[in-house]
Design a protein around this nucleic acid. Structure first.
Lengths: 210, 210, 210, 210
DNA sequence: AATGAATGAGCGTTCATTCAT
DNA sequence: CATGAATGAACGCTCATTCAT
């Protein structure tokens, strides 16, 4: 069983996540976090040991949530045919990325601290690639897919495209009609999702089952 | 005529680029940079005005180089058929990203200060998407491509995938046999390049001209 | 209700006052102050916000005290005849200047930052000139004074002479027999006080009431 | 014979004098001075040895000028009667103070460097007090003065009052109708001169010769 | 269990000065 | 003789953390 966080800790983590995503780990001071979370500045060291360890906890917290969500979602759709499952999984992953774009926008960059954290993330990737691999195989077996790209490359395509859009708003927003920030994210997600699905299914050599 | 940098300045910029890529802008102190570049700490303010302005210079220096390289390369291959040009351009872009992975790995992340810098990068993207669009159209005209995906989505796929691999070494290296760090980068580039080309051409509905 | 300073703050202010009087505001570093006050250098920012704001606090602290003392003293002597009151007030003002010579020796010099501080000092001067004016009028009415010099010129004479002596020790000490630094200040105060009283009463055209 | 300064050195000194008077010695950087004087920053060390020594030179330069002026002026008026000479000398001293208020406004404050400079200033004071003493004696002899105040106290009154007005513009300007900065100085000089003369002559027990 | 006070270290920057030319 | 480049030291300040309560 892993560490459980108290409500107060989770509150701190979520405030920290938002600030760190905006301003980077080093660019965010514990005073800022404690002000926004309306707690004493000493609390962060008190609860997590240090700022770096708080970062580790944040990491752990978010990855764990994401993994749980992924497994749960996989379970729900497990009875569908492989092409439907593939589509839903791609949509799900991209949705999660946009939902926690705060987190995913910075996370790969700031990994200096614990190697165990890197492992944890890698494990999560493992689960995902395994699932993708399974679906590709099934699809080939049932004849809807004709190619067998490597699952790590599929995942790279999905995560890479979505993260690029999240991080490069300045570039991508000129192609996305939108009225507000929130609006943009919704529309950008839709657009990148469509585009990624197109590429993934083309890469898989998808053709409708006869 | 744009600003030219002296050799000493370029030395500082390249040291800074590497450190900032590893540890972020805020995470890298001017003392670290000056130590590694074997210069006095005061030189950074002396040469660039401030740490922030040094960042701007680094930005300008690298983006300018990249744009020039791209335009030059486009010129060289302009007489080939569209499918060859497309292939070469994708390879070229990914090669550049890996070559200056230090820079491209952090650049989109750390942009808070100068908005004109964002514009500069966006302009670079514009040049690239225009080229891609042109090639797609030509390919459709000559009959080698059957689909017309949006150029910004193609670029997103290329840049996103390559950057993801660069930034997520921990994930991707388990799929890339390699002996050293340098070796890894070479092999990873090869692998992601192959994979991206596959997806791009699939997405374009490429089939050999009869 | 105005800001109250803690004992520790007052300790810092008094150390700062002495150093700044000797070496000027810019010439005194926060490290010097913190060393002499045996506190951590960060405390100055911690307690006062910044070095400049500390200067403002010092200002406020000393001017306030001086004004309160003056008003209190005025109250005590208010029942005396005007010539006695005039004499006592001159003596009191000079005594205060010598007592807080550290402060009064530099204060007018170093005022660049807060204009509200200038106003505060000016207000203090106002209180004093009003009192002097009142006494001159009373003295003329009772017939002990025959001239009515402007109160601002009287104050200028008093403050100017005393401050000049405080600041130009090198000049004035050759006319004041003394054995030690402290001794000098005592004797110098006595001498300048006598001299100023002489000039003030001569200027007022004082002659004993018949 | 004392050190003579070249034209370039004098130019630097005069620029420095103005800046230092405004912002203090420590508050004025050699870069500021060199910018305003349109010379290279290294010139100050080059010409004077150091910033502190430049201060010493400035001091020497101004005091010497002032002393020469005083002696010259004394010579001119030496044939007048003592009361006229006294009046003219007071007016002359105050005029000089206002003319070089830049210098005289800061000079007593910033004396840390050479003790020989202090001596030089003290010597200047000596010349002045001697002259004042001589005039008092003459006046008593001719019967126009009835009191014999100490010359150092007379000088203190004159210099103290004038310097106080120069330094405490915020206080004194409310009593001086004026339209501009320059205008103020002119009017303030006039006012303080009148007032000081009044006090000096009262203190001397002046009454017109019969 | 929680906090306000206090700390030492390090930050980016600017300083007066020196040095090679 | 004069200067632009470069330097080490010090600047005021903010940092994450600790400690006494």
């Amino acid at each position: 069983m892993e560490t459980q966080f108290s409500e107060k800790q989770i509150n701190i983590l979520e405030v920290a996540e938002e600030l760190i995503a905006k301003k980077g780990f080093e660019g965010t001071s514990v005073r800022e976090i404690s002000n926004k979370a309306k707690i004493n500045v000493a609390m962060i060291s008190y609860y997590f040991g240090s700022k770096e360890k708080m970062m580790g906890s944040l990491y752990q917290y978010r990855v764990k949530k994401t993994r749980e969500n992924f497994l749960e979602f996989s379970e729900i759709i497990k009875n569908g045919n492989p092409e439907m499952q593939m589509k839903e999984i791609v949509k799900f992953i991209i949705k999660q990325l946009f939902k926690f774009s705060y987190f995913h926008g910075f996370v790969t960059q700031e990994l200096r601290a614990g190697d165990n954290l890197k492992i944890e993330l890698t494990n999560f990737y493992k689960i995902t690639t395994n699932k993708l691999e399974e679906l590709v195989e099934k699809g080939v077996t049932t004849g809807v897919f004709t190619h067998t790209p490597k699952s790590e490359d599929l995942l790279t395509l999905i995560l890479g495209s979505a993260l690029f859009v999240i991080r490069n708003k300045n570039f991508y927003q000129q192609f996305v009609p939108h009225q507000s920030e929130a609006d943009y994210l919704k529309e950008a997600e839709k657009k990148v999702c469509t585009s990624v699905l197109l590429s993934i299914f083309a890469t898989l050599g998808y053709h409708q089952a006869s």
